Simulated scan of single mutants.
Amino acid sequence: MSTIVPLEDHLAADFYHYESLLPEEERKILLKARALMKDEIKPLVNDHWAKGEFPEELIEKFQGSGLAALAYESYGEHQPAVSHLLRGMLAMELARTDASVATFFGVHDGLAFYSIYSGGDQEQRDRWLPRMATMDKIGAFALTEPLGGSDVSGGMRTTARREGDTWVLNGAKRWIGNATFADYVVVWARDVDDNQVKGFVVEKGTPGFSPEKIEGKIALRIVENAEITLTDVRVPEANRLQNVHSFRDVAEILRATRSGVAWESLGLMTGAYELALDYAKKRMAFGRPIAKFQMVQDLLVKSLGNITASWGMLVQLARLQEAGIFRDEHSSLAKSFVTSRMREVVAWCREIFGGNGILLDYGIARFFADAEALYSYEGTREMNTLIVGKSITGQSAFV
């Protein structure tokens, strides 16, 4: 077994010193991300969350950081690619400051980048990924539809029709993060000839491609989610992902990114716990800090227990990924369990703030609201439960 050396500067929420499992060089990368989020990103968050707008300077903050494409050999700054454990901890670190920022980064670096990396041929990877690795170009991932979420695999309505060396796309997508400003949008559509799902990279400015920002969200307000209308969008065969042949290939991408959402959820509840712990030490009531009250300590300890349990699950999940025995049910259990624990933690932490907990100035309200989005996307609790249930019983309960 590896030796755990307690770190003096570990996070208060990392009660069992999981961060010490990282080798020194990888921990330096994590600390670099932590400093970036604290010094450059955090000051932007509350104002833009309140306005419901994406700060353009956010991309500039990430450019040059070397944090994008760390998972991919030949494209990131660090070769070979870093460990799955560090990738997870980086997702956690971003969400610890803000879930919207983590989602923006995850859509670009996870969903979009990985779609091209795994689904494209070498020419396509070399054409698009180097500029995505530096974040000079931003990606988006368009799968969900207005009338298709959990059932989109069998009910995809967006179509692709081939005309010579050109594909014509028609349909609509919804809840597509980054789509209002992305340079490359990976659009999934059903081929009308063979009824199989295929992937296409639609470049910014392509005629017939129309993204419209979704307004009125109560969560992830910094993320630019869009509803996309595709009207006779013509895409060259060279932009069809050559190694994608069916929805099975899409599911392979979602398996990896679903575990990323579990890590983000750990980050979100970690950030909420840190806010509540700090507040409890400073907030005075009846002449003493509320941290001295038994019921407040109970809420904090229950929160820490959920966080620590989630850490343990996700560290082992990363080990399964490294060993190459990572399956759909593994990521599904993690996503279902960790997001459920996150929902409990943000509620308990908001409770510690009392009336101040509904004010954006204290930060906890943002965590409380954003948790609802992470709880729902990348597969609802119910859908992930059915994936795990099928695995352990051998019986499918899908309708």
Rank of each mutant, 00 (worst) to 15 (best):
W263E: 09
N178T: 11
E56M: 04
P6L: 06
T206S: 02
R221S: 14
A69P: 05
M132V: 07
M295A: 14
D121A: 11
V186A: 02
A369F: 03
L129W: 06
E264M: 15
L333D: 03
A81W: 10
S332E: 06
E24F: 15
P289L: 13
T97W: 11
L85H: 04
Q196Y: 02
D193E: 14
G305V: 09
L129P: 04
A334Y: 08
M156E: 03
I325G: 05
G216W: 00
I116V: 12
D98S: 08
L85T: 00
S65Q: 07
A13Q: 07
F15C: 14
Y75Q: 08
M37V: 10
S310F: 07
K302Y: 13
L94I: 10
A91C: 05
Y18I: 03
P6K: 09
L241H: 00
F286P: 05
F398K: 05
L30K: 09
A69K: 05
N46K: 14
L220Q: 03
T103L: 14
I352E: 10
A13F: 10
L275Q: 11
Q297W: 13
W348I: 12
D361W: 13
F181I: 10
M1W: 11
T270M: 14
A50W: 10
R248Q: 07
A160W: 00
Y114C: 03
T134K: 12
A291K: 06
K213I: 15
Y16M: 12
